[in-house]
Structure formats: C-alpha cells, structure tokens
Design a binder for these strands. Sequence first.
DNA 1: ATATTGTCTTTTATCGTGAAAAAACAGTTT
DNA 2: AAACTGTTTTTTCACGATAAAAGACAATAT
Lengths: 300, 300
Amino acid sequence: MSKSNNVYKDAYNRCLRLLDETRSLPSEPELGTLLGVSRTTVRTILARMEETGLIAWNKRAKTVLRETRPDDFFPEEETDTLAEIIERSFMRRLLAGGAEAGMQINELELAREIGVGTTSVREFLIRFSRFGLIEKRRNSHWVLKGFTRAFALELTEIREMFELRSAAAFAVLPQDSAVWTDLDRLEDEHRQLANDIATRFTEFSELDERFHRLIHRASRNRFIVDFYDVIAMIFHYHYQWNKAQERERNEVAIGEHLVYIEALKSRDLGKVDAACRKHLKSARQTLLTSIPESRSLQKS
Amino acid sequence: MSKSNNVYKDAYNRCLRLLDETRSLPSEPELGTLLGVSRTTVRTILARMEETGLIAWNKRAKTVLRETRPDDFFPEEETDTLAEIIERSFMRRLLAGGAEAGMQINELELAREIGVGTTSVREFLIRFSRFGLIEKRRNSHWVLKGFTRAFALELTEIREMFELRSAAAFAVLPQDSAVWTDLDRLEDEHRQLANDIATRFTEFSELDERFHRLIHRASRNRFIVDFYDVIAMIFHYHYQWNKAQERERNEVAIGEHLVYIEALKSRDLGKVDAACRKHLKSARQTLLTSIPESRSLQKS
DNA sequence: ATATTGTCTTTTATCGTGAAAAAACAGTTT
DNA sequence: AAACTGTTTTTTCACGATAAAAGACAATAT
C-alpha cells in the first residue's frame, strides 16, 4: 500500500453534502475549486457517484437521482491524512504520561506502533520539531524535551511579546481595512456564544483561535503569524486533556475577549495594551495550572 | 547506493590531524567522544589506518607508525552531509537570480538536478520551511516566497525584539555566571581580529555568530535561541554573495560589538539598550542594501 | 571492579518503486 | 473563443529495502 486515497474520500464525503442542496452538479473545474481538489479527483468522485446511482453523468449533465444515505459516506477515520494520524498517536503517547523529559524517541518503533512507514514518521518529527518539544541528535535518535512548566513559560513569553505588538499594530490599522468588519463579525459570534454558553461552551476553542489569528495577522510579519501555529497546537491538545472548569474558563475568556475587542475598536493604545495583557495573563495561568507538578520537576 | 559514509570519512580526516600530535591513540570509546561518532565508526577508521600503514593496531595498543601525507585524507567534498549538499544547491539556485517570488518548487526536478533521492529533498524542504522563504501547498508543490525586502524587514523586526530582550537578560546575570568569562574571551578575540583586520576580516562572520548566540542564550528561551538559526542562515549566505566593502563593514561591526560588550559589562541597562539598538540598526542596514531592488518589487 | 575490546543487534539515512493526486494537453461543445 | 470534457504525463506521497552508523551485550584485560 503506497498512498491512501483519503483526499478522494474526504472530498467525496463533502461532495455528498453538496448533493442534498441541488438538482444537478456544476462543471468539473468548478467542483474542483469548490472542494479544493484537482479535476482528476473530481472525476473519480463523479465516477463513483454514478456507480452507486446517486447521479446520472453524461458529459456536462450531472443530474442528482436520489437522496444521500448515511451508508453512502466513507467512514470518518478513512478521511484523515497520514500526518494527522501520526500526530494524534504521537500526542496521545506524549500526554498519556510516562513521557518523561530526556526520553529517547525511536522512529522505527513509532512507525511500527502506528502501523505506517518510517519516512512518514521522520517527516512528521521534522515538522513537529519546530514546536520546541523534541530535538534531534545528529545521526541518532530524537530526544523528548517534555511538556514542562519551563516550556509553557517560554511559549507564553513569546506569545505575549508577539500579541502585544500585533494588537498595537491592529489598533492603528486604517478605518477602511477589512479587519474591522472581520472583528465585528467575531464580536457577534462571541456574543451569541456567550448567550448559549451552557450548551455550546466547547465551541469556544475554535473561536478563540480565529480571534487571535486575526490579531496576529495585523503584525504583517510571517514569523509572528507562523508562531501562532505553535500556540494553536499546544492549546488544541491542552483543551482536549484539561476539561476541568472548562465552561467557567471559557466564559471568563469570552468576557475578556469582548473587552479586548472594545479596546481595539476604541483604537486607544493604552486600553488595548491593558486588555491584551489581562487576557494573556489569564490564558497563561490556565495553561500553567493544567501542567501536572510531576512534569514541572524534570529537566534543568 | 543507500547511504554515503561521509560520517566516517569526515571523522577519519579529523582523526588524521590528531595523529600528528601523539605517539599513540587513546581507547576506542575515548576516540569516539573526541570525534563525536560511535565506536563502530571509530573501529572502521582504525581498521583503515592500520591498512594504510599509519598505525599498528593490536587491541589497546594503537601506535603511530608514520606521518600523515596529503593523500591520506579523503577529499573534502566527500565529507559533506547530504543535507549540506542539498542546501548549497538550493541556495545557489535561489540566489543566482531567476528565482522570482511565487515560483513553484518541484521536488522531483530538484532531486534529479542535484542527483539525490526525492525523500532527502522533501525532508530538506520541510526543515527549510521554517526559515519563512518557502511555503507548502497541500498535496501539491512548494511556493517560493522570495528573498525580498519584506522578508528582510520581518526577519530583523523579530531579531531586534529578541536580542534587546536577551541583552537585557544578559546584563542582569549574576556575576559568577559562566557567561562573563565567555564574554571576556570573545572580547579578546574581537580585539585580536581588530588588530589583524587587514588580513583576517573574513573571519568576522564566524565570530559574529558566536557573539550573538551567547547573548541570545541569556534569554533562556528555546524559541529565541532557535530563532537565531534563521538569522544565522540568512547572514551566512548574505556574507557569501555580498562582498562589497566587506572589510569596512566588518571593521565597523567589530567596533560596535566592543561598545556593546562594554555596555554589557557595565550592567547598565540603558547603555546596553543603546549599544544593542545601534548595532542592530547597522546590521539591518547592511542586509537591506544587499537586496537587489529587483527583488524588492515583488510580492505584496 | 572498571574500563576496553570483540561481536551482534537495532536504528537511522537514503534510495527506488508504485499508487494517488495534480497538472498539462488535446479535442469538443456551447 | 471561452469553457468544458477526455486523455496523457508528471509530481507528490508513502512504502519496503539496504548500507551506514549507533547501540547493546558478552568476553577480556588492567
């Protein structure tokens, strides 16, 4: 098995959802841009849809014949990329405890355990190394640096530096810049989420990421923008394993965001600085309390 | 051919230099740590040295029999790692002009041109991507973002942020910290280089890197320390292709470094900040003037 | 007892290969 | 002639295989 066809399967599933809304499908190139895949993949999708009797396909005519059924869909787990699979396995091991700092990481063992080739694992580790959690020994193994208190502090130090600067840059953006409408929309979403907080509090993490990315983008600096990937990754997994007081934490954060948004809209740099500092401080606190003390004792 | 034995060849060459200084070689493990390779490689080296009549090898006794000759050495180009070879080729193409922003990068073509497998090229590109000069399109090609004026400005913005903070952290380090003796040694080297500037000005870039890395390390933040890799890479190639007024530039930089060092030693934060700012400003200027105007017009 | 050597095992680095997916080209349809 | 479909070529992604290099273990020497 040399390459899974998850791109096709994922696009197929998304195409099925499209099917419920129309009588007939658009042209192949159009479908391609819509699904974010090449025409080759689009044609594979159409071929199967014809085969399973979902559509009649004759050149330009792609008529919908019947409604989609649950069993038309490919199983979710078959639509993941290899990189996602490896990342999940790796993070599970990392966070499942027993992952002490200084521990060696074995490519071959990881590959066998996950059931993939070594090349994919190697490439994953290289990509992952920029998060600062692992380090390569030349011609030899990787070393786990550990998800320690030190790591969290170093990460947040940079985050605060970058976000304060980005927020200041945001506040002085010209009034006709598109970011202000983006900000308004985000503000709306925050208010809606605040209203339904009891039932929808888990949706916050996604909103949080979009909000902070918008601000970081105002820096117009690729290194700052890219660094948010590190933060997003850490917070993503952090949210997954630390569910304590999730609802309360998110409620507080939404409130802080709204103050922060007001400050940005006021374009008062002093207010922006204060609101940003306040929110970042509590974000750091949340992250720090979630790190088990056992983890913080390791490593110098 | 699956893996070149450049580790062995490089260690062999370094071991030859060792040979000129002693009557007999130390134990295998000791040699291993000395050369930074495993005992397996050490034994391969010893075996060849015995074969070519350089030493008599009987268990612990490794007696030097004759002086080394130039033809004992492996050719320099055989001691490079694949990663180095690929990086050089890639950077040559990048800087040789004709590398416009937005251009596609083709793994297969690169691999064929350099004469290596695609895997190595892929891994190189992934590692290289953190420098912010290229970007990956999912399931598709890489895109060159170009060595533009914008890139240089974004890079130096972060550099200044990080170095000012590191320098401030440096200045308040306790008097008994080892960094102060490191700093004294670097100061010496700067003075010596200043004296022989006419003949040794090309040695500055290496000293420059060591000096700035020492300062960055004071931040005790892995993201700051790691970011210096980006700066070092850019300046490394920058020095190679911009030889205009090299001597003068380096002479000025040495002077600035010495003021900077004095400021650090005074532990006066105001002085440190001023000296650091001044030096970084001229470093940025040097970098900016070396970017051809044609390059700066591209990209938004 | 500890460090060193001899031998064997495991892991890393790299390649060639093949299927999935993208991209290019050529012929059709509106 | 502009956009679409049919066909072919190229590139990316992922694997297994293999030599280089590292690492582990047992036997030996100081």
